[in-house]
């Protein structure tokens, strides 16, 4: 009895962690939204930080839940639920979340968050560029592709360094139970 109580209590706590990280992703994308951008489609991808933290703290199921909540939450808070922007966010988040998950789980110590972050950002930006080509810009999407990808590379290296530092020093992460 008490055992199952404790188990459900723990599950409740872990769900809270998922919701908190999802909220953190939302907060980061709001911060990003406030930073002025030269072009409406140049993104920094700050919210990816929350997903990277999720890689460490969550198990596969919780991680998928985090990804779904991030996309849905952003669509609702920024009011883009039915717009192309939502499709961009969906394609970018799903593709990068998958790639980062695979790299993190298969490469272990051979990779740091810098590599994971760069791979995630590049995959995310590429899928968004393809969508932009189809939906908005036509062929001219290729013209904005190189600066877009370079920006993504620079910011993702910085984010990766940040995630690496967070992973090494976070008290919150240490309190989380190791994901099963």
């Amino acid at each position: 009895m008490s055992h199952s109580d404790r188990a459900s209590g723990r599950a409740e706590l872990r769900i809270r962690s998922v919701a908190m990280l999802a909220a953190f992703a939302l907060f980061l994308s709001t911060v990003e939204y406030l930073i002025p951008r030269p072009m409406p489609f140049v993104r920094i991808g700050l919210a990816n930080l929350a997903v990277m933290i999720g890689l460490i703290a969550l198990n596969t199921r919780e991680y998928s839940l985090l990804v779904v909540l991030k996309v849905l939450g952003q669509g609702i808070i920024h009011g883009t639920l039915v717009s192309y922007v939502f499709l961009f966010s969906l394609a970018g988040t799903l593709s990068s979340a998958l790639v980062m998950y695979l790299l993190y789980r298969t490469c272990g110590k051979r990779i740091t968050f810098v590599g994971i972050s760069v791979a995630g950002a590049t995959v995310s930006n590429s899928s968004q560029l393809i969508l932009a080509g189809v939906l908005l810009f036509g062929r001219s999407a290729w013209l904005i592709a190189p600066p877009f990808l370079i920006m993504g590379l620079v910011t993702s290296v910085l984010l990766g360094l940040f995630a690496e530092q967070f992973a090494g020093s976070s008290r919150w992460l240490a309190d989380q139970e190791a994901p099963c």
């Binding site: 990779i111 740091t112 590599g115």
Partner: peptide, 11 residues
């Protein structure tokens, strides 16, 4: 941590 070979490769 130092960057790994894989990191450098991805970049």
């Amino acid at each position: 941590k130092r960057l790994t070979l894989l990191d450098a490769g991805i970049i």
